[in-house]
Design a protein around this nucleic acid. Sequence first.
RNA 1: GUGGGUGUAGCUCAGCUGGUAGAGCGCCGCGUUGUGGUCGCGGAUGCCGCGGGUUCAAGUCCCGUCACUCACCCCA
Length: 426
Amino acid sequence: MRVTEFQAPKGVPEYFPPRSAAFLAVREALAYPAEHAGYGYIELPVFEDTALFVRGVGESTDVVSKEMYTFLDRGERSLSLRPEGTAGVMRSIVENRLDKGVLPVKLWYAGPFFRAERPQHGRYRQLQQVGLEAVGGDDPALDAEVIALADEGFKRLGLRQYRLDLTSLGCAQCRPAYRHVLTAFLDTCDLDDATRQRATVNPLRVLDDKRDEVQRQLGDAPLMVDHLCSSCQEHYDAVRGFLSDAGVEWVEAPRLVRGLDYYTRTTFEFTHELLGAQSGIGGGGRYDGLMASVGGSDLSGIGFGLGTDRTLLACEAEGLDVGAGARVDVFIVPIGEAPRHEAVRLLTRLRQAGVRADMAYGGRGVKGSMKAADRSGAPTVVIIGEDEVASRTAQVKNMIDGTQVAVALDSLLDEVQHRAPQEGTS
RNA sequence: GUGGGUGUAGCUCAGCUGGUAGAGCGCCGCGUUGUGGUCGCGGAUGCCGCGGGUUCAAGUCCCGUCACUCACCCCA
């Protein structure tokens, strides 16, 4: 029902309490592995030169050809809201000469991305992602590290019902030849015009068509993994070896295709089984020519993007109460005007000491204030009335078991800190 | 961009074949003096998405429109 004149733009998710706490927890969990593996944080612009995406991501991709929010600025320059993160990271690495320093350059980022698609469950026009890139090395152990870091993020949240699909898309050496073989095969299939059109743009895409009548014909389709050059084959074997060393489980997915043109060799995708049609919660892969295509040195890199929104949906689908818990440790209930001043002084002291605290505002009755205290979730409530002010004490109530004791105002901070959960346990 | 579904209280929804609106949850208050969560009692809240049409009469039927939603496509 429309109750206000304005609405949020179509397809843009909003997070507010209590769910926003879960959103923050998901983002933190996904970023944690990168931060603890030596990756540095990079803060990037939300819009870039349109040409960067056209060149980097690929003109033929749906993302670039029909899903970008593009506009002209006052200098008539064409800018676009970023539809993905890797191109921007490459641009920044080149522009800031990070590629001239220690390699590989390891960076992680988080933030909103934009795609003008038809909204759906888990598919938004403003989507949040946590991503990471390791640039300047084609060591297969690096591929394994990147994949393991993504996997670890999901595991930290307690997710179980997801799967890692893995394959190799070959390189500039072997892919063109394979593509030729695949195209020849597809020519023998009975496909509708739209699909045939898709095949001319990127024949690989046809492989993961969801329709049965198409899949039925693809049983004998040639696969990239059977046409890898020796170098790519060797690399892919090594990646799988290191992935095993890292304790990561995966599923061979020879028909895995990604929507961005820059991927080469190692390619992967995480999907969650409870999310419906938009099941991808993260994906990534290696990109050999990307940096050169945006004007940098010819360095290879590998990275991933994890969907924060979808990962949150996945957690909810699995019934994980991520980020739940009390927002404050202590809640103060003053009774009367003089006690309100004492309460503000106490509140200030508690907060300055690092204790998460709140108090009852708005001159409600004691009952109402206690109700507010209860709803805050605070395990400890401090009650201050006229009598307490006179005796320089406060009633400290344990909301879990209902017990209550008088504590001198001077030792209240100690008392409360003693009761509050220790750092890191909340 | 292409299909399907749905729009009724803050939330989840009921309202049969047309007769001017209901439940549960939540919210507020009360159960006597300064104590929450349980329980009991009471209360507030709806241009029934919007516009038009049919009709004595429309939440209920028809048309349009907007929004939301699911799927295709694509992707996180």
